[in-house]
Design a protein around this nucleic acid. Structure first.
Length: 288
DNA sequence: TTGTGTTTTATTGCCTCC
DNA sequence: GGAGGCAATAAAACACAA
């Protein structure tokens, strides 16, 4: 872009008069004659101050341009200005250039570069925040996996006990006691808190296991119990799946059905009742 | 002193807005 | 179509270890 090329030569021609009341006279030395071979903007200042010597001017002006750093004072001033507003309106650009003894183009470039640095810093901050968030999620996930394993072994332990019960029951002649899931009932019931609610012909209990898993317990009017897992709880679903897998090992389970919380047609919903027939107060799981 | 990595200044090309 | 912003990049200036 020709209009912008070659160090302020074609853009924003702005020459600070020597008598300028700039508060940055210190920076003027940077633009002095002794610097002229080393500085782009210095060339123009020098040109304005030494316009009597055309040869020297030509010699300087055709030297390859070099860039120079702003003084600490100039940078401080620009930083202050940037903090107050990181966008640069033309008036402010001219004003800053005057006060700093710089070309407006230099001020514009400085702001542009400063915005780029600021953006990079912001990206770094955002990255750190995301990283921290990820680490927390990861730790949380690992805890959940451990919890899941714990629950899994719990279910396996319970089903083993059920199997033993079943085996013992089939060995004995008493069919009544054989169908009682005492171990399951005791082990589960002592590990949960219950709350109560009424639901149609059932009393619905909200139960909370020690591990934080919530479920609903449906107590039939005739005092039999079933479990109804909440659909929102994936870990319980997982547990139910495990229990469902173990079902073939358990003799005599029945599958009553529930629609909208009410007991209806035992065959209308695809779910399992993991209880036992004929129990007065049996525990079991609804499995979907 | 010099090689090397980092920071700063400046350019270029593209894009958007008016 | 010109002005200005931005991303990418070049290159000078600087810092610093060896």
């Amino acid at each position: 872009m020709a209009a912008r090329s070659f160090l302020y030569g074609g853009d924003d021609p702005f020459i600070v008069p020597r008598s300028s009341s700039s508060s940055f006279h210190g920076s003027r030395s940077m633009l002095s004659f002794e610097d002229r071979g080393n500085g782009a903007s210095g060339g123009q200042f020098w040109r304005s101050e030494d316009n009597g010597d055309d040869d020297e001017y030509d010699e300087y002006f055709h030297q390859p341009e070099k860039k120079r750093r702003l003084t600490a004072d100039q940078v401080r001033f620009l930083e202050k200005s940037f903090v107050s507003d990181n966008k640069l309106e033309p008036e402010r650009k001219i004003q800053l250039a005057k006060e700093l003894g710089l070309q407006p183009r230099q001020v514009a470039i400085w702001f542009q570069n400063r915005r780029a640095r600021w953006k990079n810093k912001q990206l770094e901050k955002d990255y750190d925040v995301l990283q921290e968030s990820y680490n927390k999620l990861k730790a949380n996930y690992e805890n959940l996996v451990k919890e899941k394993e714990k629950l899994k072994s719990m279910v396996e332990e319970l089903s083993d006990k059920m199997m033993l019960q079943e085996k013992g029951a089939s060995d004995s002649s008493s069919t009544k006691s054989a169908s009682q899931p005492h171990v399951l009932e005791e082990d589960v019931s002592k590990n949960m808190n219950t709350g109560y609610g009424q639901n149609g012909n059932f009393i619905e209990k909200t139960v909370e296991f020690d591990n934080g898993v919530h479920s609903s317990l449906i107590e039939r009017v005739d005092s039999s119990y079933v479990f109804e897992p909440e659909q929102s709880d994936g870990s319980l679903d997982e547990e139910n799946n495990l229990v469902k897998m173990l079902l073939p090992c358990v003799d005599g389970y029945t599958s009553p059905k529930i629609t909208n919380g009410d007991y209806t047609d035992p065959h209308s919903v695809n779910s399992y009742y993991l209880g036992f027939p004929g129990d007065e107060q049996a525990f079991g799981f609804w499995s979907y």
